[in-house]
Amino acid sequence: MGGTGAERRRAGWRLAWPAGLALAACSGSQSALDPAGSEAERVAQLFWVMLIGTGVIWSLVIGAAVYAARVRPGPHDPAISRRLIHWGGIGLPVLALTALLAYGLQLMPELRAAGDGLKIEVSGEQWWWRVRYQTADGRSIVSANEIRLPAGERVELTLASPDVIHSLWIPNLAGKVDMIPGRVNRLVLEPTRTGNFRGVCAEFCGASHALMAFAVVVVTRPEFEQWLSQEAAAATGASSAELRRGAVLFEQVGCGGCHAIRGTAAAGTIGPDLTHLASRRTLAAGILPNEPAALRRWIAAADTIKPGVRMPSFGMLPAADLDAIVAYLASLE
């Protein structure tokens, strides 16, 4: 599948060639025009085809209008006008639209075909992502704000939401699908190359809709296996006195009421699971780099970084306590 995907991509780029300069502006970790998944590739190809068609049709129509109004504004034979309406208004559009509709319709079942086995449940919540990997042997591994995928496989995402409507969109891999309370939707992704991408919430979901992103990491199958087994493991114990102090404070301050760290008493399910927080690429749902300074800022002032966030800010903690908690969390590889 992966090989044919790459070929299709090359075909897509060849088709895109006339679009010239626009191409230079297409690469990016969150761009539908730099596809890294088979769905996105086919849609990008569709887009380039349509863009060329659009350019041609627009030029013809506006050319005709300018010709009639400015270039030769004198009276013409009505027969020409009649033919213009018959062919320009009806004939050609019906032909072009029929072809395009057929193109679009035949893509749909293909893009919605079933997955290969690996299933991931993603739940959009204000304003972060709960991720649960269902392995073939029936294990369920909880993570948050980052989706890891093996390249070349069709992975089925189950999408839900407990609060308001969200929409999961990884432009490089595929189109978006909404996460609607009371409903369960499905999205099948087939990444064709490894790399780091960015996904976002595409449906307006309240004050911090703009601050609800996530990292997408596409790796090879063996790397994925290794990562998954690491992710499934409990947190490593705190190795120094300062880290132990942080662990105790984490519990005393009540963080465990919302967050879980597997292997400790913290088992909250309201906020993201933090068991392997330090191994993630970003913090706070894709909006901060994962480094201790940012983590400290986040814990101290979550509400100014993400308006309306459901986590209280802990800037009132004594600096030493805050530092200890940050150090502990930053140790959770």
Partner: peptide, 17 residues
């Protein structure tokens, strides 16, 4: 034309996905 268009999906799509 519009009626034929509306019937077209039945040609291409075979299940409820």
């Amino acid at each position: 034309v519009a009626t034929i268009y509306v019937a077209l999906p039945a040609l291409f799509i075979g299940d409820c996905r």
